[in-house]
């Protein structure tokens, strides 16, 4: 199937008192119809900012998208003004955020907030929009949706609010649903409910999903392909099985080794990645992982590697060194 979104060379920066923060440093990726793309990486690596940049949601100032293009249905999203962008955001591309409480308006009913995106984008009657809201609230598993649309966000539990957010994200039947850590604040049993729900809806409705998380566990069972981000770059991208079976980047290898596994019966000391994530205050002319990398060679300090296909199909890594030999690629 074809790509429905192609992002090329996206760069976003923030001007702060301490200097310019290079939050996203030339990110390129594509997503296909119906595909689930996972984006993983630690706090501050640029996951949220790269998505916000696509949707025109970067607060300007201090932020600015300084380069790149994002082609969606033949249109470069980065060139749209606010009004034009509103036609896409919330209808063809929608976002579900991490913290449902801060994304809701506390004084409006759940029904009104769920119906609103549909009303705005479809110019229909209130009754129609509410009917559709009830349908989508039922779809995401809100019991008695007909009655509960009259309630307010605080009357819903965290898990239920997250379901409502998903209903709001889906009500316009988007082509792409961007889920930014939608389960991070939830307990694991509720997280499992939401993940099952999203998988079911994906199969029923056929939308593409971009799922952002720092949890390599959750993405393993959900994504078709994964982008690993570090310091504002995608440092490895691969089909999910290839990534976990044959991680190529020292950072990805380190992350996977630092996770305890439930199925390990004997004790294994966790591998830890020493040092700290980059400050992003300079645009590195060297590999961003170099200060923490156990394999670094001279070239890593003078040249920033780009994504190259070194392993099976569609598996790209930005690193000068072959992890199998510990030596520079020829």
């Amino acid at each position: 199937m074809g790509d429905i979104l192609q992002v090329k060379g996206l760069e976003t920066q923030f001007r702060t008192r301490n200097g310019t923060i290079h939050a996203v440093n030339g990110v390129s990726f594509a997503i296909r119809e119906g595909e689930t793309l996972g984006i993983v990486g630690e706090s501050g690596c640029g996951k949220t900012v790269s998505m916000m940049s696509l949707l025109g949601l970067i607060p300007t100032p201090p932020g600015k998208v300084v380069a790149g293009e994002a082609l969606f249905e033949g249109v470069d999203l980065l060139k749209l003004n606010n009004d034009q962008m509103r036609k896409y955001r919330g209808s063809k591309i929608s976002v579900v955020f991490q913290d449902p409480m801060t994304s809701f308006n506390p004084v409006l009913t759940i029904g009104r907030q769920t119906a609103e995106p549909f009303m705005i984008h479809n110019n229909c009657s209130k009754a129609e929009a509410y009917e559709r809201a009830i349908k989508y609230l039922e779809l995401v598993g809100i019991p008695n949706a007909k009655d509960r649309i009259h309630e307010y966000p605080h009357q819903f539990s965290g898990g239920m609010r997250q379901r409502v957010m998903i209903a709001m994200g889906l009500i316009c039947e988007p082509k792409i649903l961007i889920a930014d850590e939608p389960t991070t604040a939830l307990d694991v049993t509720i997280q499992a409910q939401i993940v099952e729900l999203v998988k079911r809806l994906r199969d029923e409705l056929g939308m593409a999903i971009i799922w952002i998380t720092h949890d390599l566990g959750i993405i393993a069972g959900l994504a078709d392909r994964v982008n690993v981000m570090y310091g504002g770059y995608i440092i490895e991208t691969a089909p999910v099985k290839s990534l976990y079976a044959n991680p190529q980047h020292p950072y990805t290898i380190g992350l996977l080794g630092s996770l305890p596994r439930m199925d390990e019966l004997s004790y294994r000391r966790l591998t830890s990645i020493d040092g700290l994530p980059p400050t992003l205050l300079e645009k590195p002319t060297y590999c961003p992982f170099e200060p923490r990398c156990p394999h670094a060679v001279a070239r890593c300090r003078s040249e920033n590697p780009t994504l190259v296909n070194r392993e099976g199909d569609e598996h790209y890594v930005a690193c000068w060194v072959d992890p199998k030999t510990g030596k520079e690629y020829k």
Binding site: A192, Q193, V195, E196, Y244, R261
Partner: peptide
């Protein structure tokens, strides 16, 4: 409910959804 960082296991895992 605990996810495993392993797509091969996750593929066939049966979950008890509360």
């Amino acid at each position: 409910a605990v996810p495993f960082p392993d797509p091969f296991i996750e593929e066939t895992r049966e979950r008890i959804i509360l």
